[in-house]
Amino acid sequence: MIFAIICKDKPGHLDTRTGTRPDHVAFLNGLNENGALKFAGPFLDAEGKPCGSLVAIEAEDQAAAELIAAADPYALAGLFESVEIRAWNWVFNNPENA
């Protein structure tokens, strides 16, 4: 099942995001290598600066998705003000259905 991990950064934590980004990218690359990562990218504020994240992953269930989200270096660094994890159905433009 696919889960969308929707994260909102704490205000004023752009330095935390920037400093942790290499570890976060390595984490996502690992998810990608094992087939769990579907897509990912930052939300942007009005100035075009990152202010959150959207990460879509394949996981067995909600509990497994929560473990993956908690292991993200951004989460471990305390970047996020909030994290929402929701089951999601990729209907349109899913490359697996092409």
Results as ranks from 00 to 15, higher is better:
80 F>P: 02
42 P>W: 00
49 K>N: 15
20 T>F: 01
52 G>R: 04
5 I>K: 07
94 N>L: 02
78 G>L: 03
23 D>E: 13
77 A>W: 04
42 P>K: 00
98 A>T: 14
97 N>M: 12
67 L>F: 07
94 N>A: 08
77 A>M: 11
46 A>S: 15
57 I>E: 00
61 D>A: 08
15 D>S: 13
22 P>T: 00
80 F>G: 00
50 P>D: 02
73 P>R: 04
70 A>C: 10
49 K>C: 08
29 N>A: 15
94 N>G: 12
59 A>P: 01
29 N>K: 13
30 G>A: 11
98 A>H: 12
79 L>R: 05
67 L>V: 14
4 A>K: 09
51 C>D: 13
23 D>A: 15
34 N>Y: 08
92 F>S: 14
9 D>N: 06
26 A>M: 09
19 G>D: 06
38 K>R: 13
53 S>T: 08
8 K>M: 07
44 L>W: 03
20 T>W: 01
36 A>S: 15
85 I>P: 02
91 V>M: 12
44 L>M: 13
36 A>N: 11
49 K>A: 14
63 A>V: 14
12 G>T: 09
66 E>F: 01
77 A>G: 05
57 I>A: 03
35 G>R: 02
27 F>T: 07
36 A>F: 01
3 F>T: 09
75 A>C: 12
55 V>C: 03
93 N>V: 12
5 I>A: 06
